[in-house]
């Protein structure tokens, strides 16, 4: 079973990296999302795969049952998902803002930062 998961992780990573190589900002963002999914799956697999009960303590017990899964990788993934959610939302807002101010989502058109003080442009826009 691990092998299937290993292949899915590598497939997801491949897709993510392919998308990140694009010049389109939205595609790059999707690439990041898929790559972080691959990372989450990787944690899940490396935490040890077993077909067992979910790690919830039953009402009449104080500790986890013998057959329960290891809750730690799941907790890690949950944390990573929440953080990833916040970052991707923020990055999406940034892309929208870039589209609004620069008027393009292609990285070729985005060289305002590069212009400042560059010897290849005469006088950059004043900023500060």
């Amino acid at each position: 079973m691990s092998l299937i998961y290993a292949f899915s992780v590598s497939a997801l990573m491949g897709v993510g990296i392919y998308l990140m190589l694009s010049r389109h900002l939205m595609r790059m963002l999707f690439g990041v999302v898929i790559l972080s999914t691959a990372a989450n799956l990787l944690i899940f697999v490396s935490g040890g795969l077993q077909a067992v009960a979910p790690p919830i303590i039953q009402g009449d017990m104080n500790i986890l049952g013998e057959t329960a899964a290891n809750p730690l990788p799941q907790a890690l993934i949950l944390t990573a998902i929440v953080i990833g959610f916040a970052l991707v939302a923020f990055a999406a807002a940034l892309v929208l803002k870039a589209y609004g101010t620069i008027g393009s989502v292609f990285t070729d058109d985005q060289n305002d930062a590069e212009r400042l003080g560059s010897p290849f442009y005469e006088e950059g826009p004043r900023n500060g």
């Binding site: 900002l25 990041v32 990055a91 940034l94 870039a98 620069i102 212009r115």
Partner: peptide
């Protein structure tokens, strides 16, 4: 300040640092 240069810089910063954290 939300200037063009800042948005441009922030996008480069964001993408590469996101790769790093992944």
């Amino acid at each position: 300040d939300r200037t063009r240069a800042q948005i441009d810089g922030a996008i480069k910063y964001a993408i590469l640092n996101l790769i790093s954290t992944i």
